[in-house]
Computed example of a mutant assay.
Amino acid sequence: MTRLTGAAGAPALAILDPAATRLLDTLDAVFTDWGLRAGAEEISPPPLYPVSDLEKFDVYDNFPHLAWAATGFDLADGEVKAVDGEFGPGTLQQARYGLPHATCYGAYLYHEGDRLPGDTLLTLVNRCFRHEERYGGLRRLASFRMREIVALGSHAHTQDVIARFGRCIEDFATALGLGLERQAATDPFFRSDDARALMARLSPVKYEYQYGDLAIASVNTHRNFFGERCAILKPDGEHAHTSCVAFGLERWLWVLQDRFGTDPDAALDAVRRAADAVTVADR
Rank of each mutant, 00 (worst) to 15 (best):
Leu152Lys: 06
Glu181His: 08
Gly85Met: 09
Asn62Trp: 02
Tyr209Asn: 06
Glu41Met: 14
Ala266Tyr: 02
Arg273Val: 04
Asp119Trp: 03
Arg96His: 15
Ile15Arg: 10
Gln159Trp: 12
Cys244Ala: 07
Ala195Trp: 08
Gly227Pro: 06
Gly227Ile: 11
Leu24Lys: 03
Thr242Gly: 15
His155Gln: 13
Asp213Ser: 10
Ala185His: 04
Asp236Val: 05
Ala270Leu: 03
Glu238Arg: 15
Gly179Ile: 01
Trp34Arg: 04
Ala102Val: 11
Leu36Cys: 07
Ala266Ser: 12
Leu178Ile: 11
His131Asn: 12
Val30Asp: 03
Asp236Met: 06
Glu42Ala: 13
Ala40Cys: 03
His131Asp: 05
Gly166His: 10
Asp33Ile: 01
Leu48Cys: 08
Asp236Ala: 08
Arg196Lys: 10
Ala38Gln: 08
Leu66Ile: 00
Arg164Glu: 14
Leu214Phe: 04
Phe247Asp: 05
Thr2Val: 00
Gly166Ile: 13
Leu268Lys: 00
Trp252Phe: 14
Pro18Asp: 02
Leu253Gln: 11
Leu249Phe: 09
Tyr110Ser: 08
Ile43Cys: 00
Met199Lys: 15
Gly72His: 12
Pro235Cys: 07
Arg272Glu: 01
Glu133Met: 09
Pro47Thr: 04
Ala7Gln: 09
Asp53Ala: 07
Glu132Arg: 02
Ala8Val: 10
Ile15Asp: 09
Asp193Ile: 07
Asp160Lys: 15
Ile43Phe: 07
His241Asn: 13
Ala151Trp: 04
Pro64Glu: 05
Leu16Phe: 02
Arg145Thr: 03
Thr262Asn: 14
Pro45Glu: 04
Arg139His: 04
His222Gly: 07
Trp34Pro: 05
Leu27Trp: 02
Asn224Tyr: 12
Asp265Asn: 13
Ser218Met: 06
Arg229Asp: 05
Glu133Val: 04
Glu41His: 14
Trp252Thr: 10
Tyr97Gln: 15
Phe260Trp: 12
Gly179Asn: 13
Leu141Phe: 00
Val278Cys: 02
Ala20Met: 08
Gly166Ser: 09
Leu122Arg: 00
Gly35Asp: 06
Ile149Asn: 01
Leu121Lys: 02
Trp68Lys: 11
Ser192Tyr: 09
Gly179Arg: 14
Leu141Met: 03
Gly153Leu: 09
Thr123Met: 02
Gly212Leu: 06
Pro64Val: 08
Pro235Leu: 07
Ala8Arg: 03
Thr174Ala: 15
